[in-house]
Design a protein around this nucleic acid. Structure first.
Lengths: 348, 348
DNA sequence: CTGAAAGCGCTTACAG
DNA sequence: CTGAAAGCGCTTACAG
């Protein structure tokens, strides 16, 4: 009863039960082409009766690639990535693929290690929010061997892979302009991870808006791990204190918001703020946050579809040039200085 | 260059390169017992030089179980589960296991389907936040065939599996008592998913506290999908309006908070609130939320360790009776009526 | 300490 | 439409 024998029933058992060859069973499992109606019925009945389930390891060993895709994200603690991951898993499952999950923690060596695990497991394709230049070479090698790769949210040059991005520049441009429209002249741009092109594009958007308006730019761009809140607070006491701040991602927004709260700085009166990246609780904050919403779910969905498409067409060996860029949306709340939308009078 | 041939180099290639048998290479890969020092060195050098990587599918086909564990959670959108999932993935990776991810969306048929996929993929063991009674039988069948299973956060009776829970009753008891200490007499208990024992225990904790204090209980317990906020608001206009509310999980807390905000009901003056489940932004809310903190990360860590332990000892075939119950913590903020902690004067 | 043989459960050509 | 043979890349006994 407790022998460690899983999947006890094999294709041979089914074949025997029907008095046919294993090939016939295999054909039925894989789309029943060239099998007579009646035969197919008999085999299917036996499969159901014996509760047979094909062993994926065996199929993989022959077919060289498993119906599993790998997903590498920096972290699942960040709601943006977890939402994305959720969408990936959903779409993959719908299409009959399983998802192997990896959270690399933006750790260089971990990402490389994970990539090599992927290869060992005959993963069909890779979805990655790339965090490290170090694993680039390995990624490229995987590509060369024909494994399809799709980069999500940010990309590295030199990798021949599909890309699903967001309109970072446009979103940041609009956000900054909105602040300018509110009359702000000294707008500070704050954030982490400037080495990623997603963040880089947001910075460009900010820059473009400031330049267009003839305003001078101010930045606080630090490395991950450096507490950024105190720096923003300190800038408020400088000779030219900013009257508004544009934060480059949600981690930054939360860090800045925490510091402002701690220092009892009033938003938006003393400092207005717009963040890139919206999140569920943004509207329930002490001062509801105006934010650039990124379609995290759509990002995951599109990327997964792109990957599976290239798996189906089997053109992973060719160049993967697809690129999708999704629009962002500026969600106006109060932290930018906008008034709360007056509620419709409710009938008592 | 672009043939779909991954993992081109096999164990045979390595063996040939060293002029040894494949067995010797296999031994080196798997812990180098009974291999001479020099031989091991030679083989390892060849492995590195050829960039050889053992094919997991082949190993699995022989060994019957892959170094992969399956994780089934209801959703990754809920930060509690995504944090938990993150911890699982981390610990598993440290121990050399990969994580196959499934988000079942509390969908009965999906959970069952996923479970059967697990079997097909020779998964070594299962970590599950169970959502459905429907898949119980299947889980139990998996158990019978020797697959170790650990349930996280909530459990179903009749499944012989490891359990990692949280002190739900105690946490809820303490939270309710705290509200009573603030002078509240009419405390409403609100939530979803009463069918889960985790939620059931929280209800018991509330009940115990109310009974001990000689107070009468009030409940709003609804099915998933039903908007719960409006019901809480409505109760405020009843003959015996509650002066405080205890919410049974974070989804409920957020729903109630949203409704209270919409109706401009002041917290804690008009209605005090304590929620079960803490979250990152709780302290940045309009009124910082007092909450029972669950150690999501610890939950994931312990569960993964428990699973891997039973994989190592190979006692999956025997009964899995381990049970870990982690403590919760009441995080006092302002929504319960407590005063904000006075800040330490900062040197200007 | 080392290796030749057999086989894990499936699928890919190849015949009929 | 159907099946016997061979082999995917590894590991498990079994010999030396």
């Amino acid at each position: 009863m407790s022998t460690r024998s899983r999947s006890v029933v094999t294709i041979a058992d089914v074949a025997r039960a029907c008095g046919v060859g294993t090939m016939t069973v295999s054909r039925v499992i894989n789309g029943k082409k060239h099998v007579s109606e009646e035969m197919a019925r008999r085999v299917e009945e036996a499969i159901a009766r014996l509760n047979y389930q094909p062993n994926e390891a065996a199929r993989t060993l022959k077919g060289r690639t498993s119906r599993t895709i790998g997903l590498i994200v920096p972290s699942l603690s960040d709601p943006f990535f977890s939402q994305c991951a959720h969408a990936v898993q959903q779409v993959a499952a719908e299409q009959g693929y399983m998802t192997m999950l990896f959270a690399c923690e933006a750790n260089r060596s971990v990402e490389a290690e994970e990539l090599s695990q992927m290869r060992a497991r005959n993963i069909a394709g890779i979805l990655i929010v790339p965090s490290s230049e170090n694993s680039l070479e390995q990624l490229q090698e995987l590509r060369r061997s024909g494994m399809p790769v799709v980069m999500i949210d940010r990309t590295f040059a030199g990798i021949d892979a599909g890309e699903v991005m967001v309109e970072n520049l446009e979103g940041a441009f609009r956000a900054t302009n909105h602040l300018i429209d509110h009359g702000h002249r000294r707008i500070l741009c704050v954030g982490y991870d400037r080495e990623y092109n997603s963040i880089g594009e947001r910075i460009e958007g900010y820059k473009k808006a400031m330049q267009t308006a003839g305003l001078s730019q101010q930045y606080i761009l630090v490395k991950r791990g450096v507490p950024i809140g105190p720096k923003v607070v300190a800038s408020l006491r400088s000779a030219k204190p900013p009257s508004a701040v544009f934060t480059l991602n949600n981690v930054t927004s939360v860090a800045v918001l925490s510091a402002l709260k701690r220092e009892e700085i009033r938003i938006p009166q003393q400092l207005a703020i717009i963040g890139f990246d919206d999140f569920e609780l943004a509207s329930l904050l002490a001062v509801p946050l105006t934010a650039v919403r990124q379609p995290a779910t759509e990002l995951g969905r599109h990327a997964t579809r792109m990957l599976i498409d290239s798996l189906r067409t089997g053109n992973g060996g060719e160049r993967m040039t697809s690129r999708i860029v999704l629009p962002t949306e500026l969600i106006l709340r109060q932290s930018c200085g906008c008034e709360p939308i007056s509620r419709i009078a409710r009938p008592s």
